[in-house]
Simulated assay, not measured.
Amino acid sequence: MRAFADGFVALLLPVYLTALGCNAVQIGLLASLTLAGSAAVTLSVGFLAHRIVPRLLLLGASLAMALTGLAFAGFSDFWPLAVVAFVGTLNPSGGDVSLFLPLEHSLLAHAVADRDRTALFSNYSLIAGLVGALGALAAGLPDLLGALLPRLEAIRGMFGLYALAGLVVFFLYRRLPVAQADTAIAHTPLGPSRKRVIQLAAVFSLDSFGGGFLVQSLLALWLFDRFGLSLAQGALFFFWAGLLAAASFLVAPRLAKRFGLINTMVFTHIPASLCLIAAAFTPSLWAVLALLLVRAFLSSMDVPARTSYVMAVVTPPERAAAASFTAVPRSLTSAAGPTIAGWMLSLGGFAWPLLVGGGLKIAYDLLMLFMFRNVRAPEEAAKSVLD
């Protein structure tokens, strides 16, 4: 439900703000505020996760999601929307960067043995990717409903649908088994793994900063402005991109089992970033879309591998705190990217955000390989001993 809602909101956000009279810089600023707000809330969870049961936090976040949708459907001025973007759950990236993610990761990590953890997170990401692709396709509904409703009102209705999804998620979370979600897992603040988590968070911050230049809302805005892509065409493209990203989650655990988690993260990520850089210099729409589709397939393989790696290299009681602390840079440092990217797009048609974002991500991959190539997950260490 969350992935479906995030899928259409990420595409509708730049269209909605443009219809309200916002420019590229304002759209980038609002996207930055959403990411900064998510980072602040997620960091708070990192401090409090060992004191408050995860189920209650998930229920509170669901209500915040419903209120965010209602506020965006009701407000028309930029600054009220900016405030809601900061305190709410809106996601301009098309991928999950909210409070929900570290809480769910910490619960899921305890559900299976070490050898099955990467496959579990691949399935988790696969479901989110498939449904997120359907959400992106649903972003074309306002154009299809043009004969029945004014376009602006149809988009407002989609934000109402986002609010409804938040309520449905609330009632689904209420069905979580209390013994599993609340009492079975002992959560503690960071302790023995603190140094390693800080190192991971620092490296992830570079990747997040690069990713901030490439949030889906601004990538869509560039395609709309540079190539005249319609909302319906953009929805169709991001639908296929989402399907390819989801398909990659089926491949990721096999690669991780064969080559290791770090190698899977790095050597799929670098070609994806090279596709981004190439797209910045490509004048043909079809060639750009082809490069972005290849990038969609390759760039997401590190998602389940990275999640599994973080859960593997900390002690089980620290997992909730580690998930929150390593998730924070994905929002906090990426929050600066959309504002800078919006300013870059306002200067002209060249895709500076793709060039800068791709270069930063390659730097992250090389740094990750250098720092953590010898830090293995338990199942990898066991396999090495057996070999």
Rank of each mutant, 00 (worst) to 15 (best):
R2T: 00
A3M: 11
G7M: 13
Y16P: 01
T18M: 11
T18C: 01
A19E: 14
L29H: 08
L30V: 06
L30R: 04
L30W: 11
L30A: 01
G37M: 06
V41W: 13
L43E: 08
G46D: 07
F47E: 04
H50C: 03
R51K: 15
L56G: 09
L56T: 07
S62I: 02
S62R: 08
L70P: 00
A71F: 08
A71I: 01
F78I: 04
W79T: 10
L81G: 05
A82G: 10
V84C: 10
V84T: 13
A85Q: 11
G88N: 09
S93K: 10
D96N: 15
S98M: 09
L99D: 03
S106L: 02
H110D: 01
A111I: 00
D116A: 12
R117I: 01
R117Q: 04
L120E: 03
L120C: 07
Y124M: 04
Y124T: 01
G129Q: 05
G129T: 03
G135L: 11
L148G: 10
L149A: 10
P150Y: 12
R151L: 10
L152R: 08
I155C: 12
G157P: 06
G157K: 03
M158V: 03
G160Y: 05
G160P: 02
A163M: 04
L164W: 03
L164S: 02
L167T: 00
V168G: 02
L176Y: 12
A184L: 07
A184G: 12
A186H: 12
T188N: 03
T188R: 15
P189F: 05
P189L: 02
S193G: 15
K195N: 05
K195R: 13
D207S: 11
G210K: 06
G210P: 07
G211K: 05
A220L: 14
A220S: 15
F227I: 05
S230H: 08
L231T: 11
L236Q: 12
L236N: 04
L236W: 05
F237R: 01
F239M: 14
L244H: 05
L250G: 14
R254C: 00
K257Q: 15
K257F: 01
R258Y: 03
G260K: 12
I262S: 05
N263Y: 06
F267A: 03
P271M: 14
A272L: 13
S273C: 15
L276C: 07
L276R: 13
A278S: 13
T282M: 15
S284T: 09
L291C: 06
L293E: 00
V294P: 00
A296Q: 07
P304W: 05
R306W: 00
S308T: 05
A312V: 01
V313D: 00
T315E: 15
E318H: 08
R319S: 14
A323V: 04
F325K: 06
T326V: 14
A327R: 10
A336V: 15
I340W: 07
W343C: 01
L345K: 05
S346D: 10
G348Q: 06
G349N: 08
F350H: 08
W352D: 03
V356W: 07
V356F: 14
Y364I: 09
Y364R: 14
L366P: 12
F370P: 00
E379F: 13
A382D: 08
K383C: 00
